[in-house]
């Protein structure tokens, strides 16, 4: 479905990604793991075209996306939920969703406001509320809901659990699991290993912009030594 090959990216002259490759199968959840600064967010941004890749390829169903403008990449079918959420604070919940709305994709049930409210019931009661007056967890839900309104073929979820209270993290995991159950392909990035373990099929461990490990998520969870090597202090 989504194929990333030998992706390099720079911030200014800082070389952040050193040839990241990964492959996401349809309906699968692939989780990028790694300590902060490992390059997870940059991988997401490079795939999305927000940080133009300096080399490498990004293909969605065979179509080359590297070097395209973000709005083109979004239209082709990548839906990006940034780590900082970046909801439009001056807009209401309903308006935020409207910004994300795009025509439906063939052969899939289109996302509507009602459908995202069914996924995140907490949002349904605050349609007219300015996004600036929402809690961190609600903003995260809104950020995901807004991107879903674009009917993406692949969802890029950058650290959805960051800074959230444990009970909200669990709810978030439930939502991601529900999306997966509907057949959504998801590229996830996480620092919270337990969150990742509940939803991910595949794990790609990054360190300093280099892929250090690729494997099944359950296998990683069983292998304490492997975990300690890449993820612990």
């Amino acid at each position: 479905m989504l194929q990333v090959q030998a992706l390099h990216a720079h911030y200014g002259r800082a070389h952040i990604l050193h040839g990241v490759s990964l492959a996401l199968a349809p309906g699968e959840v692939l989780c990028l793991l790694g300590r902060n600064g490992a390059g997870k967010s940059t991988t997401m941004k490079a795939v999305m075209g927000l940080v133009p890749p300096s080399a490498g390829s990004v293909r969605l169903e065979g179509r080359e996306l590297a070097g395209q403008a973000p709005h083109v990449i979004a239209r082709v079918g990548l839906g990006y939920v940034p780590e900082e959420r970046r909801i439009f604070a001056g807009l209401t919940v309903a308006e935020n969703l409207e910004v994300g709305r795009r025509p439906p994709r063939d052969g899939r049930e289109p996302w509507t406001a009602d459908r995202v409210f069914a996924l995140f019931p907490a949002l349904a009661s605050m349609r007219r509320r300015p996004a600036s007056r929402m809690s961190g967890g609600e903003q995260q839900m809104l950020a995901i809901a807004r991107t879903l309104m674009g009917n993406p073929a692949v969802l890029l979820l950058d650290e959805p659990s960051e800074g959230l209270a444990p009970v909200i993290v669990e709810r978030m995991a439930g939502a991601v699991a529900a999306l997966k159950a509907e057949g959504m392909s998801i590229l996830l990035s996480e620092q919270n290993l337990l969150f990742a373990a509940t939803v991910a099929d595949q794990a790609v461990v990054l360190e300093s912009g280099v892929v250090r490990h690729v494997g099944a998520m359950p296998a990683l969870m069983r292998d304490a030594a492997l975990r300690a090597r890449f993820l612990s202090v």
Binding site: P166, E190, L231
Partner: peptide, 12 residues
């Protein structure tokens, strides 16, 4: 405690 914080935990 440090190991737990770094590996994350949904319940705390």
């Amino acid at each position: 405690l440090v190991r737990q914080v770094y590996l994350g935990g949904m319940t705390g």
